[in-house]
Nucleic acid binder design. Structure first.
Length: 109
DNA sequence: ATTATGACCCGAT
DNA sequence: AATCGGGCCATAA
């Protein structure tokens, strides 16, 4: 499979994240086929094609830590959106993965 | 084709 | 718990 396909797959998965749930970069990378490409995944979110189809704000670090955001006020906007979505926060810039972590196996689409 | 950078992750100190 | 360093992958210049 080409790397270009990998990127598209990541976008597909990212846009598949249900509202009120969040996924980690490593998780997206793993689902896309490259468990070690967590870094590249972050770059895909950064250079995402359309913020409306790809819910990049629902992507957080492995420990639920908010890393970055290219739109709005950055992490501030990202955090705000997540709260509006119904995601529970554990700290200032941390998401409660225990309750808001997306389970791709259950989503099936 | 090579070098440099980054919205990451993990292990060790 | 916090900090430091190394490794992996894809993109941009």
């Amino acid at each position: 499979m080409q790397t270009s396909s990998f990127r598209q797959k990541v976008y597909s998965i990212a846009s598949s994240i249900p509202k009120g749930k969040v996924a980690t970069y490593g998780q997206l990378a793993r689902l896309a086929g490259n468990p070690r490409a967590s870094r590249a995944v972050g770059m895909f979110m950064r250079t995402n094609p359309d913020l409306k189809i790809v819910s990049c704000h629902r992507v957080v670090g492995s420990n639920g830590k908010l890393t970055g955001y290219s739109a709005g006020e950055g992490l501030v906007t990202k955090k705000k959106i997540l709260i509006l979505e119904g995601v529970k926060f554990s700290g200032h810039d941390r998401v409660d993965l225990s309750s808001s972590l997306w389970n791709p196996s259950k989503s099936t689409n």
